[in-house]
């Protein structure tokens, strides 16, 4: 059963069509990929799914529920979390605080009970901290929990971004170029990590990636965008041998 589905999404900015007729399906517990040359509209597709943009036409379904045009924070609440291509951590805040903030959406309280520390709020706050520490343990960031997030090495920042997305308790995770700027060894670790969190947190993952090694390694199905148009879709093997994909990436003779 498809947990996330888009039907003919088209996104136009003025006269430019960034994404046109994008239809995809993400089955539960699968990892699928979205590739394409620079400027193909991959991130725009992500932004449409996560509610940053309202599509010009088309629909998005999450568990058969139409979520087209819902605000980003509500989409996260429903269970779709994301990371960003250019890391967007809360720089001046500590690693632990970054993860705690992602827990805020599950808090059932109000600012005034928080200020007067009602037992209900204190219990929830304690639970949030325990949960966040456990998550940081899980992703091997527990040793740096009190560091400000901008001071972390690049690879750690990437991992913290994923951890922060996981803290929102998602069912679907959208990763925007998680391997960007990583060397082959780091990419391998990342692949293992992605598969590990998929199994551990019962996730379905949709990722944009440029590193072919990563995409071909973990994705069961791949969509290829070029100039906003879906030029191919299929298994990694099919994509590798698809002449239109080769043409889009390498040009034609």
């Amino acid at each position: 059963m498809a947990i996330l589905k888009t039907e003919n999404i088209t996104m136009k900015f003025g006269g430019i069509t960034a994404v046109s007729d994008f239809t995809m399906e993400l089955e539960k517990n699968k990892i699928i990929g979205l590739i394409g040359p620079n400027g193909a509209g991959k991130t725009t597709a992500f932004n449409v799914i996560t509610g940053v943009y309202k599509p010009t036409s088309g629909h998005i379904f999450y568990n058969k529920e139409n979520i087209t045009g819902i605000k980003p924070h509500n989409i996260t609440k429903l269970g779709i979390a994301r990371t960003f291509q250019n890391i967007r951590l809360f720089k001046e805040l500590s690693v632990l605080e970054n993860v705690l903030i992602a827990n805020h959406l599950r808090l059932k309280s109000n600012p005034f009970s928080a200020v007067v520390n009602t037992p209900n709020y204190v219990r929830q706050e304690k639970h949030m901290i325990e949960k966040s520490l456990a998550l940081l343990e899980e992703v091997d960031l527990i040793d740096v929990k009190d560091e400000k997030s901008f001071s972390l090495p690049y690879g750690y920042q990437r991992r913290l971004e994923i951890a922060r997305a996981l803290a929102t308790e998602p069912k679907v995770l959208l990763l925007d170029e998680p391997a960007a700027g990583m060397n082959p060894q780091e990419s391998n670790q990342l692949m293992e990590f992605i598969i590990k969190i998929r199994d551990k947190f019962d996730l379905s993952i949709f990722m944009i990636e440029h590193h072919m090694q990563v995409v071909m390694g973990v994705c069961e199905k791949i969509y290829v965008l070029d100039h906003g148009i879906t030029i191919a879709q299929g298994t990694p093997h099919e994509i590798q041998n698809n002449p239109r994909v080769i043409e889009a990436y390498l040009g034609v003779e």
Partner: peptide, 18 residues
């Protein structure tokens, strides 16, 4: 913390469900 998240990065804060 939610307010500080908005200060640090509105887009990320919104994506975290704030």
């Amino acid at each position: 913390r939610a307010l500080k998240a908005i200060r640090e990065d509105e887009i990320a804060a919104e994506a975290m469900g704030i």
